[in-house]
């Protein structure tokens, strides 16, 4: 099996935790911090750091609201994030025939 060339992939998404965040958000319209934490099972600090990186890159957007008087931050993929994620998936898919050969 040929080695998978990770260098051709978007580094920002290829990190396992950020990939998990992007995948979890790609499955829904939006998700709040606690739902993402459940999905990817990260600590608050770690998740917050990776969310910030994705937000700074413009891949996700945060929307702060109040729900039952409690602050809730909801995250959603931006159009840029959706495009980057789709491109990442395309690159992965393009590798499949090579690795199966």
């Amino acid at each position: 099996m040929s080695e998978f060339d990770h260098t051709s992939l978007d580094d920002l998404i290829h990190s396992r935790l950020r990939l998990a965040i992007m995948a979890a958000l790609a499955g829904v319209e939006r998700a709040d911090f606690s739902a993402l934490k459940r999905q990817v099972n990260a600590t608050d600090g770690n998740l917050g750091m990776h969310l910030r990186k994705l937000e700074e890159a413009g891949y996700i957007q945060a929307d702060k609201q109040f729900q039952d008087r409690k602050p809730v931050t909801r995250y959603a993929l931006t159009d840029t994030g959706k495009q980057a994620f789709a491109a990442y998936l395309d690159q992965l898919a393009a590798w499949l025939p090579k690795t199966r050969a």
Binding site: F4, S15, L19, A20, A24, Q39, L92, T99
Partner: peptide
């Protein structure tokens, strides 16, 4: 991270996307 294979990543992504959607 460098040794990960695309099959693993795609399966991982598919599973996470489906799981986050399914609960809703």
């Amino acid at each position: 991270a460098e040794k990960r294979q695309p099959e693993q990543d795609l399966a991982f992504i598919r599973q996470l996307m489906e799981r986050s959607r399914r609960v809703t």
